[in-house]
Amino acid sequence: MLPESHSAIVARNEPWSGSVATEPYEVGWAHEAIIFVRALAVSGAGAAEARVQISPDGMHWADEGTRFALPSNTAEVTYARVRHFGLWLRIAADLPDGLALKVLVSIALKA
């Protein structure tokens, strides 16, 4: 059987401002992930980073160490490659005052 692969849309057209995080997503079957972020709308100015987070249970989260920029305009795609992440993944971010995004976040997973 061919190795499994899957694209999971974990945030679609979701308004982001302040402290935000994607919903917990189970990835225990996968060996590698790329987390992509697109901004479908941007208002205000400023730059923000996303942090990749891992969890033992989908409820308690720790920074995995990977950080990447969130897109600053609607044409940009930003991403992070992650391996060795256990059973759960999400991204979290703290947007500066005045910056608001509508995001599309997808996780490309491969076993």
Binding site: A8, V10, Y25, D57, L87
Partner: peptide
């Protein structure tokens, strides 16, 4: 509909 998100393959793990 906007609230829907991706289904998962789960091992139904408990804390």
């Amino acid at each position: 509909y906007a609230q829907h998100s991706a289904a998962m393959l789960s091992s139904a793990s408990a804390w």
